[in-house]
Simulated assay, not measured.
Amino acid sequence: MLRFKGSIVPKKLIVVQGISNSGKTSSIIEFMKSHRNVNVVPFPALITLPIQKSGNWILGVAKDGDSAQNVRDAVALFGTYNCDIVVCATKSYGASVSALNSFAAANPAITIVRIASTWVATGHAAANSLVASAIESHIP
């Protein structure tokens, strides 16, 4: 549980969900660049960092999510690095969603927020920026 400003906030998993090549990874990287000032090339598969926005807590970010193992690696950040919030990607169907649903069923106290990443023919940067802002809107 997160504690700040006299309240308790449950741990949170923010999931960017969409079909292959819909901009999930690009949106997560855009979130880290624009909203967290993290600009690393190449961007690592998993990254954790302390955040001070409305309190002191640990954010974990996993940019890959096309496989069930990617999702398991992402949610392991809660335990491995004691993250309070984890951002990850998953497809909109298949094994990665099954892994996410299994985690959700086993961890009902963790709030799961799903953000859709939709494929666009043009305007990828604008679409990624919108998803990045949606991620940020769920950071306390």
Rank of each mutant, 00 (worst) to 15 (best):
L59Q: 05
K24D: 01
A68T: 00
H35W: 08
P10F: 02
A89Q: 02
S34Y: 08
M1E: 13
Q69S: 11
Y81D: 13
L100V: 01
S102Y: 10
N39Q: 11
I115N: 04
T25Y: 05
P42S: 07
A62T: 00
V113Y: 03
I110T: 11
P42V: 06
I8D: 14
G6K: 06
S26R: 09
E30H: 09
W57L: 12
A45P: 10
K91H: 12
I135E: 06
M32A: 08
A45S: 14
S96K: 03
I47H: 09
S7T: 15
S67H: 01
K33W: 05
C83I: 02
N107W: 05
S27I: 08
A104T: 14
I135N: 05
A106P: 00
E136N: 14
S27M: 07
L59Y: 01
N37P: 01
I29Y: 06
A99H: 06
R36S: 11
V15Q: 01
V86N: 01
Y81W: 13
K11R: 15
A76H: 08
S92N: 15
A74G: 05
S102T: 14
S98Y: 12
K53S: 15
V71M: 06
T90N: 00
K5R: 14
Y81M: 13
D64L: 10
A89F: 03
G23Q: 03
N21H: 14
D66I: 10
I51K: 06
K5P: 08
D64C: 07
K91F: 11
S67N: 02
D84E: 09
T111F: 09
W57C: 08
G18Y: 04
Q17T: 12
S7H: 14
D66A: 11
S117M: 06
T48W: 07
G6D: 02
T25E: 05
V97R: 10
T25G: 09
A95I: 08
A89T: 06
R72W: 04
L100A: 03
L46R: 10
N37L: 11
A68Y: 03
P108D: 00
F43E: 02
V75M: 04
T122M: 10
F4V: 09
G18W: 00
F43Y: 07
D73F: 03
F43W: 03
G18P: 04
G6Q: 00
N82L: 13
K63N: 12
A116P: 12
K24E: 06
V75T: 13
I139P: 07
K11C: 07
L77Y: 04
A134I: 06
T48Q: 08
N128S: 10
L49P: 01
N70K: 09
R3C: 11
G55T: 05
I85S: 07
C88T: 14
E30V: 07
S34D: 11
V97H: 03
A121W: 13
V38K: 07
I139E: 04
A126V: 11
A45F: 10
A134Q: 12
G79Y: 09
G79I: 08
I28G: 07
F78E: 02
S129T: 13
G123Y: 04
S92V: 10
G55P: 00
D66E: 14
D73S: 08
G94M: 00
G65E: 01
I115C: 04
V120E: 01
S54N: 15
